[in-house]
Design a protein around this nucleic acid. Structure first.
Lengths: 220, 220, 220, 220
DNA sequence: CATGAATGAGTCTTCATTCAT
DNA sequence: CATGAATGAAGACTCATTCAT
């Protein structure tokens, strides 16, 4: 019994250390990809920044792409979690959509502009494998929003203009939040205006959705 | 008198030939960038496709980037012309916005999906120089839409939610048209649904704009 | 008779123009080779500087090397002429050697530092063909000095240390004048000190020669 | 205690191997630059000759220039060491100068003609960076000789013609030894005559120096 | 597991030279 | 003769990836 423990303790430490290394490397990649661009960052630089050797980077990530894909996955997951939380708080109502939008700008874009840079810029126009993953995560995101819109529709007992409308709206919403973030954070750094912008963008979104409700809710 | 410019004939032909070459090369680049991706296309391949030597490609374009930037410029210009035309036809009204949106999908996206690919995908995440030009052309586009919104505002004697609203709406509209095009043409090829999607996207856009009108037009 | 003249007039003009072109191009090359270096100067740049087309440059000089070789020849010839004149003025005496050295610094190095740059720097370390010509002109120069030394020897009825001495001394003299010019004109621009330097260098040279006289002139 | 540095063994071997590789590559470059010329030698050829890959060459030398500069440095250092040794052996006397000259021809030029080729030919007329280093090492060499001449002057309590004389003489000496080596080893291979030539060149040098002593040593 | 030297395919880019007009 | 667009071989350099220690 006793000597089964020491092993597991060491093993646990190892496990912990390995996870730390993984994180360190991924963080290094995130920092550099955001600062210099994916193409302009070499594996050596990432190893340097993470204070490990190239070999070690390759132990955790088989290819350079994998770093980008892992980041993509993490960021996609974070955004979905954020939205999911807000959708849940205000179950199946337009408020969920509204709060999710505001939270995205306030708690995500402003906090982690480098993640925006990676998700919406550095991961675009790279290899096919990256594009595939990028599509996967953005489609999931779109799916989440589509689902939320469907729940809202069901609850409000309304229908939308066409059978494609829910998904289309979700796509529009993603497009808005993508471009607004890029425009006001990556191109012009207007961080101080971001919440004004956010409110307008959310308004735009909500009105856009309402505009596709069909037939209009008849207040009888 | 006429033969006082004997140069012109030969010179004109040369000029014409030069322009043709330029076009041939740019077309080759467009095709390949859209098909294989910017990074994955080598200058030799472009030369091959254009049926000239690498040297000739470099005679017309000093660097590989310059090909992408030239394409960016052309495409940006084409989109602006399309929108400008529609805005002018329905002077300062929401119809202009509507028709411009529909025309974009019908007369641009469907006709030249490869241009969409270059403008919204292949030119992203490349070098700084490309990003700079990309920003330039997208900001111009946003400016055009902003101006149109301002003209509409003036004509209707309304105002919008905040001092940033016009620009913000323009950014949203660009985001929508970008993402919708990518989603339905590059990711899923749902060309046949595109006009349904387009109508919904336009509706979404118009409602979005209306939603930011403030104070609401008083129905007297 | 009469109509044989017009032809020859035009022909003469042509001839003159051709020679002017040749000069213009060679001057352009000289300027650029001295300013930017032979390797760093392209044929296009030379054409530009000479205000002609590349094709024209190639009409007068079949290869890029030929420009350098032509310059080498000219410069070599100029130096030999300068030395020859001084040698002749002070027939077969050490004064000839002295005056030639002073004239070299005063009337050549100071006037045409760019020729020094080409003769002693830009034409070194290039292709085999250039090296061959460079050797040819420097060997001629050495030969001239050797001959002068032999004439002096004969006149003074002396002999030198070994059968190789005359040539060796000439080689030394060429080496001195080469390095001094490079050192004080191309590396440090100490043009204002050049005549002091020149006097010392000439003294050094003359003493060097005297030192190899053997047996020493017995002052009886 | 001993095994507190278990790294050292493996690390030392690595260090040694690295240095060997560095040498192998530099030797390959030296051989090829001397045989074919700097310009005419490609990095691939150097890699081939050194039996490594191009990548490895670039691992040790960031640019092609760096190979030449490293060679320049080594050769410059070797020559200075040789001279320094002779100067020291015959402290502050003309014998030092004499022996240094003879040693240069006997122990350097004859042994390593390829180094002469690189130092005095292949490194001339290349890029600015190379020229800069070349100047640096030749100026150091000149400085060494200048210092020796000053020490001799002090010991003998004499002075030279002008305040520039020491440096000027050093420049002359460098010029002589440069040109003589090139003339009799690179242009005509007269290796068998080299020691005769050397003696004459040394005589020339010594007399040259004496000639600039001023006022002449008073024969008491 | 970590290291970092080694690999070499791949690419952009340059530029001397040619030749049809 | 002059022009300048076209050629394409050649070469420097990069960097993702591997692997022996």
């Amino acid at each position: 019994m006793e000597n089964s423990k020491p092993v597991s303790k060491a093993a646990l430490r190892r496990q912990r250390e390995r996870e730390q290394r993984y994180r360190t490397i991924l963080d290094a990649a995130e920092t550099l990809f955001a600062r210099k661009g994916y193409q302009q960052t070499s594996m050596d630089e990432i190893a340097d920044q993470a204070e490990v050797s190239v070999g070690t980077v390759y132990f955790y990530f088989k290819k350079k792409e994998d770093l980008l894909i892992a980041l993509l996955k993490e960021i996609g997951f974070d955004i979905r979690k954020l939205l999911g939380t807000e959708f849940k708080k205000a179950e199946a109502s337009m408020d969920g959509l509204k709060n999710a939008g505001l939270a995205y700008f306030k708690n995500f874009c402003l906090q982690y502009p480098e993640k925006i840079s990676i998700f919406f810029r550095e991961s675009v126009g790279q290899s096919q494998a990256v594009e595939k993953q990028r599509k996967r995560y953005l489609v999931q995101l779109t799916g989440d929003i589509t689902d939320a819109l469907i729940r809202i529709r069901n609850k409000r007992q309304i229908s939308y203009a066409s059978h494609l409308s829910e998904e289309l709206m979700a796509v529009c919403i993603v497009g808005i939040y993508e471009r607004v973030a890029c425009h006001y954070l990556l191109w012009d750094d207007r961080s101080e205006d971001i919440m004004t912008v956010a409110r307008d963008a959310v308004s735009f979104t909500l009105s856009g959705v309402e505009g596709l409700v069909d037939p209009p809710e008849t207040a009888d």
